[in-house]
Design a protein around this nucleic acid. Sequence first.
DNA 1: CTGAAAGCGCTTACAG
DNA 2: CTGAAAGCGCTTACAG
Lengths: 346, 346
Amino acid sequence: MTGTNPQTARSGRGRVLTVAKIARLAGVSAPTVSRVINGQTGVALETRRRVEAILREHGYRRPGGSTSVAIVELVFHALESLWALEIIRGVERVAREHDLAVVLTEMQGRLTPGRAWTEQVLTRRPTGVIAVFSELTVAQQSQLATRSIPLVVLDPTGEPLHQTPSVGATNWNGGLAATRHLLDLGHRRIAMLGGPPEWPCCRARLDGYRAAMDAAGVPVDPDLVRISTLYVEGGLADGRELLALPDPPTAIFTANDLQALGVYEAARLAGVGIPDELSVVGFDDLSFTRWSGPPMTTIRQPLEQMGATATRMIIDLAAGQSLDQHRVELATELVVRESTAPPSRG
Amino acid sequence: MTGTNPQTARSGRGRVLTVAKIARLAGVSAPTVSRVINGQTGVALETRRRVEAILREHGYRRPGGSTSVAIVELVFHALESLWALEIIRGVERVAREHDLAVVLTEMQGRLTPGRAWTEQVLTRRPTGVIAVFSELTVAQQSQLATRSIPLVVLDPTGEPLHQTPSVGATNWNGGLAATRHLLDLGHRRIAMLGGPPEWPCCRARLDGYRAAMDAAGVPVDPDLVRISTLYVEGGLADGRELLALPDPPTAIFTANDLQALGVYEAARLAGVGIPDELSVVGFDDLSFTRWSGPPMTTIRQPLEQMGATATRMIIDLAAGQSLDQHRVELATELVVRESTAPPSRG
DNA sequence: CTGAAAGCGCTTACAG
DNA sequence: CTGAAAGCGCTTACAG
């Protein structure tokens, strides 16, 4: 009577992990371990810490749990543009190849998921969590860690977290390439429409712009560097102000394609022709850029592959493998279309 | 010592379902039920049948398993445009309000999910399934029905199925409104760029166009009605051919916004100005239409609400309620922007 | 093919 | 805060 219950938690090697064994390892009783696993109160902080460490170390999982329903959680701050859809596609593709179900959540613009989300995720016991353009609280991170649910962040918004594995694009290189392209065309009054610089991806694009300008020996006019929102409206508003300057820019590099579309509209309203009187470079290469009037020069971000990469990292981590690198940056690429040309004046 | 194990399977009402109870109901012992549940051999066919019937009837679920994970399955033929994203948002919003997890699957362009999908869905035992722009086989439908998993189709592609609840928009009205708008502006040579007419939503838009033309007493020139693909490339190719006709149209109504974007590009390449020389009306009102050059007149389809409605139908059906109506069509609306104007000639 | 008995893993009052 | 004891749900040899 071996009593091997198929619902029983197993570690990677097939060694059966039970609450009793964890208890023995931690030097406590089974009920105490049970309480820790279920997040109940009435356990001394010190004891809880010790038990959690052992749980994590041995990769304990509840019996049954995710055995039949293997899930990867995908959390977005917002589902607003094709940017999100490309990432979803990449995640879904790799997940499907590994028989993982993708559970999608939107946080309605907030950058940190709420308590309700955390509770539900802990109930669902996913194989892993991918957080896009967001940040988990330290408490949320440790709750996942306790249950050995790996977390990967795509385009992290917080302080570059060295512990949390993350995926992004070579944003700095992208900013550099976009600006150098404009410089090579002969532009000198090049404006940068940035996103909120507290977000590393936006900051890196801005820094790439500055680096290219410095390298070319072109001083950056502070009036031409503006922080805007990452939406069409932001590009429209700030684009109008830039074009209304006494000495307006001959080129504008924006932090994303939506902003660039806003600049298009600002130029249209101001009667400024693209690319004859104004060059515009976007960032992302969302599909509509190919069909905008005129087709947009932009920095391609491999969003689908970023989603796919994040998912593969989750799968590797869940299998107990260590990652080659905790921070993966996929290459950006300059895509030259018809919104950039040599300056007509200056 | 109630021994209420959180891993215990529960029916909807909270009544605890155990192997022992199923055994009592089936008039067999618990080990026999256990063997049936785990698909082991050594159970008489007759007994197995009886036990399976009881299990299904009472909705027995393995402990732990998917019990606590309430899921709604969302299947797309493809995740390609903002069209999909809007629907996802609507589904996700209502699902979140009801503590349901949204599991997203893409079928890479196929209109019927494969065997692997079916197996996984049956394993996940979702609260319901929403199929977008697709069709389930009769076998798949009955597999869901057997497990009382409700199915709702959004924009069905097959024969209008009277048994399967579905959600759509008032496509015929939309086609009528778009065409009437162009007629009211004075256009007579109005082209229609349709999608594949075997898809009811496309067929209805085309029929709405014809109805408006007939009502206005304007004969439809067969050369001006073309069936195209629902992508930018389709609108570009067919738009170019329309504009190359000896007697080209003064207005084009397209089956969706992507096609209309293709027509924009065709006009740009042909040096035809919008709206001065050509009026264009799209369909969907995806967000980029507001920012296309010029901003697009289009028929708004409430995609977010369609997703939300489908999800509410699933929730009602899963709760055992009957639906008010099995086919819901949400209203479309003409949004007039700057791509339409009176014809310059004719 | 079937069930009574044994036993495993987990959790829950309860005592200290 | 902690653990010994009780007990639930499930499964597995074993007997018939």
